[in-house]
Simulated assay, not measured.
Amino acid sequence: MTTAFSAAQAATAAGARLRVMIVDDAIVVRGLFARWIEAEPDLELIASLRNGREAVDAIDRVKPDVVVLDVDMPELDGISALPQLLSKRPGVTVIMASTLTRRNAEISLRALALGATDYITKPSSQNEINAATDFHRDLIEKIRCLGRRAHKPVAAPPAPPAEPMTHILAPPLVPQVVPAAKPLHYAQQHGPITLRPMPLTAPRAILIGASTGGPQALNKVLTNIDNVIAQAPVLITQHMPPTFTAILSEHLSRLTRRPVHEAVHGEEIVAGSIYMAPGGRHMSVTQSNGAPVIEISNGAPINFCKPAVDPLFTSAAQVWGARALAVVLTGMGHDGLAGAHDIINAGGHVIAQDEATSVVWGMPGQVALAGLCSAVLPIDDIGPKLSRLFAGDRA
């Protein structure tokens, strides 16, 4: 993920500032958010309002690029204001903000279906907000990244921070017969993307990593792979806090009519089931008595994320080797890149969502531009591609 300094420096040099509207009934929260935004040279606070009614009345006049919209407010709450804001200013980036309760999680996920771009969970008290450096960073990065993605030309995803990567760049562990790579002429500013061959045999497990925009993307993928789920387990790491992952699992289970649940430490992984990394915990895979099982851990965040995609991908490469297939969906940052290298080094394969259909082409863009993918596809094509792969299509 870009640092705040480098992103702000580039935007300031280009003379572009994102116009931000804050809508929250708590004056102390509005004041704190305002100070954070005004401290960024590439962001401009153009309105600080108390409720959804004020926001709806002002949006035509102030013309924000980004709205940070509280869920609970008097007169007109966030979920009621959202469709009116989008109707008056189509394409505006709306980030829902709420404290972490089941009710607010349900509302935030509903808001995504109604057109909100993303959500952010506020600490539960003013003292916690003041002390939450991670929340401060996440709020500013979401405003910056999502606002520029919607309103400015898309640039190539930044290189991840320099770090030792010898373990992921080692020679492949499983020899592969690799036909000549074919370039994918994708986006002019990125240059061609080199694609690897598709698997020669059907995978034994599907591993999915997603972040911003992930719930909507998961809806589209999972509803199109019923035959795949019957043949192989699906393991998902979606960047989400606790409670949100439980509600998302319930929603996906109703949608797919398949068992989707937050994974439990030690449970056996079987075909026909979909396992969701629980919010605030990392999910990986290990073996017990020769069978793959779930491992849940409470380690430190990885790539600023918890759960993170890398532990799932890396451990899956160790368990399933060449029969592991990773799918990287929309999301900010580079989580999943190291794990995707491990998948490839073990002989496995990677599919990424394309830039045009991603809310943010950070995570999928990183693996695509690193030359790790066998396909880079629009979200509507990923499910059918997986179905054809399990039906024997190797093209």
Rank of each mutant, 00 (worst) to 15 (best):
G209V: 01
G209K: 12
S211W: 08
T212S: 13
G214S: 10
G214R: 12
Q216E: 10
A217C: 13
A217H: 14
L218E: 09
L218N: 06
T223S: 14
T223K: 08
D226Y: 00
A230C: 11
Q231K: 14
A232V: 03
V234D: 12
V234C: 06
V234W: 12
I236V: 13
T237Q: 01
M240V: 07
P241L: 00
P241N: 00
T243P: 00
T243L: 14
T245Y: 03
A246H: 08
L248D: 03
S249G: 10
S249C: 04
E250G: 04
L252S: 02
L252C: 01
T256Q: 10
R258D: 14
E262W: 00
E262L: 03
E262T: 05
H265P: 06
H265M: 06
E267P: 05
E268W: 04
I269K: 01
A271T: 07
A271S: 12
G272T: 07
I274E: 15
Y275M: 00
A277G: 07
G280C: 07
H282E: 07
H282L: 05
H282F: 05
M283C: 10
M283A: 11
S284E: 15
V285F: 11
S288R: 11
G290K: 03
G290H: 01
A291E: 11
I294A: 06
E295D: 10
G299F: 03
P301I: 02
P301E: 06
F304S: 15
F304E: 14
P307R: 09
A308R: 08
V309M: 11
P311F: 01
P311D: 06
P311W: 00
F313D: 06
S315E: 14
A317H: 08
V319Y: 05
V319R: 00
G321V: 05
R323L: 07
L325T: 11
A326M: 06
V327D: 08
